[in-house]
Amino acid sequence: MTDTSSPAPSMAALGHEIIDIVRTVGVALAIALVLRVVLFQPFTIPSSSMEPGLVTGDYIVVSKLAYGWSRASLPLNPPLFEGRLMGRAAQRGDVVVFRLPRDPAQTWIKRVIGLPGDRVQVRRGQVFVNGRAIPQAPLGVIWDHDAQDRRVLAIGEHTPDGRAYVTYDGGPGQPGDDTDVYVVPPGQYFVMGDNRDNSLDSRWPHELGVGLLPAENLVGKAGFVLASWRLGASILKPWTWLDLQPDRFLKPIR
Rank of each mutant, 00 (worst) to 15 (best):
P135H: 09
V96W: 05
P116T: 02
G171M: 05
R92F: 03
G125K: 09
Q91C: 10
Q106Y: 12
I155M: 14
D177W: 03
P135E: 04
V127R: 01
I155L: 15
G176W: 00
T159H: 00
R132S: 13
I113D: 03
M86H: 09
R99E: 07
A164H: 11
R92T: 05
P175L: 04
G173L: 02
M86K: 11
Q174R: 15
Q106H: 12
G125Q: 04
G156I: 03
E157A: 02
P175D: 10
T179N: 08
R124D: 13
L139P: 10
D94M: 04
R111K: 08
W108H: 12
D177L: 07
R102I: 15
I134N: 02
R163V: 15
D103P: 04
W108K: 03
V127E: 01
Q148S: 09
T179R: 04
P175G: 07
P116L: 00
V129Y: 10
P172L: 12
V141K: 10
D94F: 01
I109L: 05
D169I: 00
R150W: 10
G156R: 13
D177Q: 10
T167W: 01
L115F: 03
G93F: 01
P175N: 13
R119H: 11
R119F: 05
P104G: 06
D103H: 08
R132A: 15
G117D: 06
F98H: 07
G140Y: 06
F98E: 05
Q126H: 12
I134C: 09
I134T: 13
I113A: 07
V141F: 14
R111D: 08
Y165I: 07
I142M: 14
R88E: 12
P104N: 12
D161G: 12
A105P: 05
G114R: 00
P101H: 14
R88L: 11
I155N: 10
G114S: 03
T159P: 00
R123M: 13
Y168I: 01
L153T: 11
G176A: 04
A90V: 08
Q174K: 06
G171S: 07
T179A: 11
Q136P: 06
D118P: 03
A154P: 04
F98D: 08
I142L: 12
G125W: 04
Q126F: 06
Q148E: 10
P116H: 06
R102N: 12
T107P: 00
A105R: 14
N130E: 15
D149R: 09
W108P: 00
K110W: 02
D169C: 02
W108T: 01
R132P: 01
P138Q: 15
V129A: 13
P175R: 09
Y165P: 07
P172N: 15
V127F: 01
L115S: 12
V127C: 04
Y168Q: 01
R119L: 08
D144A: 15
